[in-house]
């Protein structure tokens, strides 16, 4: 059995750890709320953008869209943009995303990885997957500005070289209890992506004017769409990350509470044992010295 001092030392350490995990729990709660502020509005914005793009796709004559952004079938190397966290201590959040990315990458020849987040970058390197470009600090605090910076990096990549497919792997925030890792295609857009909207639009046959021409308009549309999309991805990931951390820290705090209870009980037992021992010793000493109770 450990000595009192040892148990006290242990107890102190556990109490300090509990303080930290509890503080991190509260912190990630507020961070999650911050990250979620704009999700709904941005989704509505994206949906509107998608409608406009669909309108252009449907009404523009087939050959007018000489654009690289919309194709009929996909060719070329795939790029995977993987969004993970910059810090650990968030349960299986990062592993789930990276595992999904690795699984999807098997379907492509020589895929290229772009990592948003330090942890993902490390995990890929540990698994022997080269990371073409790494972006640190992006997933901690998602902002619109950041989303447009990331976009201005990805679109040139898409247009140059042979990277003609861009996938985003991130964690989708479904609700407070459910977050699922998802792999979605950012670019290119396929005609069939808009088939659901096409039917609604069928009635309005008036051909809109494009200023200055369809190609330029489409470039601008896609750029805005990608910014909105990346913003959404960053926000959903940040919200999911903080929920994962919240749960991990809540469990840690609970475990610490359990340990503290156990250790306190141990400490009491040891102290009791010691007192009993001392009493026994004193009693024994008295007996040996012939001093009997009542004889005085």
């Amino acid at each position: 059995m450990s000595t009192q001092a040892e148990i006290k030392q242990h107890l102190k350490a556990v109490r300090q750890t509990r303080q930290i995990t509890n503080a991190m729990y509260l912190l990630s709660t507020s961070r999650m709320k911050m990250a979620m502020q704009n999700i709904d509005f941005n989704l509505m914005y994206l949906e509107r953008l998608r409608r406009t793009i669909a309108g252009v796709v449907v009404t523009a004559a087939y050959n007018d869209l000489r654009d690289d952004f919309i194709v009929d079938n996909m060719l070329g190397t795939a790029v995977f943009v993987v969004v993970t966290s910059d810090k650990g201590l968030c349960g299986g959040y990062n592993t789930a995303v990276v595992d999904l990315a690795l699984e999807k990458m098997k379907e492509h020849e020589k895929p290229v990885v772009i990592s948003l987040g330090i942890v993902g970058d490390r995990m890929f390197r540990d698994r022997g997957v080269p990371v073409a470009y790494s972006w640190f600090g992006a997933s901690q605090h998602p902002t619109l500005n950041l989303a447009s910076q990331v976009t201005s990096k990805i679109i040139p990549l898409y247009l140059t070289n042979d990277f003609h497919q861009i996938y985003v792997v991130y964690t989708e925030y479904v609700n407070a209890n459910v977050q699922v890792p998802r792999c979605t295609r950012l670019l290119p857009l396929l005609r069939e992506d808009f088939s659901d909207i096409e039917e609604e639009r069928g009635a309005a046959n008036t051909r809109p004017i494009f200023e200055p021409n369809v190609g330029v308009v489409f470039d601008y549309l896609v750029n805005q769409y990608c910014i909105g999309y990346m913003y959404d991805v960053l926000m959903q990931s940040a919200a999911s990350e903080n929920i994962a951390r919240m749960n991990a820290m809540q469990n840690a705090t609970r475990n610490a509470d359990e340990m503290i209870r156990q250790l306190s009980a141990d400490l009491n037992a040891v102290r009791q044992q010691q007192i009993t021992n001392e009493i026994t010793e004193i009693a024994a000493a008295c007996e040996a010295g012939g001093l009997q109770k009542g004889e005085g």
Partner: peptide
């Protein structure tokens, strides 16, 4: 570019 009411459908960059 100025847009007034009842403009013909248009998309402009």
């Amino acid at each position: 570019l100025t847009v007034l009411a009842h403009h013909h459908p248009m998309v402009a960059a």
